[in-house]
Amino acid sequence: MQVIARRVGLCTALVRPADRGATTLTVGRRHRPPEGAWTVYRDREPCGEVTVLGCTRRRGAGAVLHLAGPLPFDLAAGVELGDDLLPRQRLHGLRHSNASIQIREGVDLALISKRLGHSNPSITARLYAHLLRSTGQAVAETVVRAVPRRVMRPSHPQSTHNDHRSASE
């Protein structure tokens, strides 16, 4: 599971540290063509960007990436290059993410429950109650917008303060 999640947004990871001012990065296996602009991630948190112009293959699966300009910061081995990296997550966590997305998008709770293999929708409702509250609020607001309103107008015009002036003014 981790391999799949990693490959979704990962270009590569550094196998050797790189100092500020370097114009090349030594990386391991590449999951995508390396040419282009890449976000640099330390511990899955973005910390900068580099632009790769090309690469030279190394022995094995590695490569040396050639940068468009000098590296603006020091990088340790293990730093990753990619875009929108998925967080490290267990397979069971993806199950919860799937259910959360379905609830947010308004999929019927009975259908979600069936797809998750719960014996009845009340189990799903109990597990995801925190999400159902916000979804319920959104549904209520949708209904309020859909119900036509009759504009109430007064049956006789109300006088204003200025209408009660005396003739002497």
Rank of each mutant, 00 (worst) to 15 (best):
S166N: 12
H161F: 14
N120L: 06
L75G: 01
A13Q: 12
A37Y: 05
T23P: 00
C47S: 14
M152T: 09
H164T: 15
T56W: 05
D19P: 07
T12I: 05
V107T: 13
S97L: 14
T124H: 01
G62P: 00
A110Y: 08
V50F: 00
S155I: 10
R95Q: 15
A13H: 06
V40L: 09
H161M: 12
A68D: 12
A61V: 08
I101C: 10
F73D: 04
V52M: 05
R16D: 11
S100Q: 08
P154R: 14
G78E: 01
H66P: 03
I103C: 03
L25G: 00
R7W: 11
A68H: 09
G28R: 01
V147M: 13
I4F: 13
H156Q: 14
I103H: 03
G78V: 03
R42K: 09
E49Q: 11
Y128R: 02
D43M: 08
T135K: 15
W38Q: 01
T23I: 11
R57K: 13
C11I: 05
Q102N: 11
W38P: 00
G54R: 09
R133I: 10
P121Q: 11
G9D: 04
V52E: 00
S159Q: 11
G48F: 02
S159F: 12
R88Q: 13
D84V: 08
H118Q: 06
L132W: 02
A5Y: 08
A110I: 07
Y128C: 00
A77M: 02
R133V: 12
R150V: 11
D163C: 07
R126W: 08
E169A: 12
R149L: 12
S166D: 13
L65T: 01
V27Q: 00
A76Y: 03
L53F: 03
R30W: 03
R58C: 09
A76C: 06
G54D: 13
G82F: 02
G136F: 07
H66Y: 04
I4S: 13
Q89G: 08
I123T: 11
R29V: 13
P46R: 05
A125Y: 00
R30E: 09
A68S: 15
R42H: 13
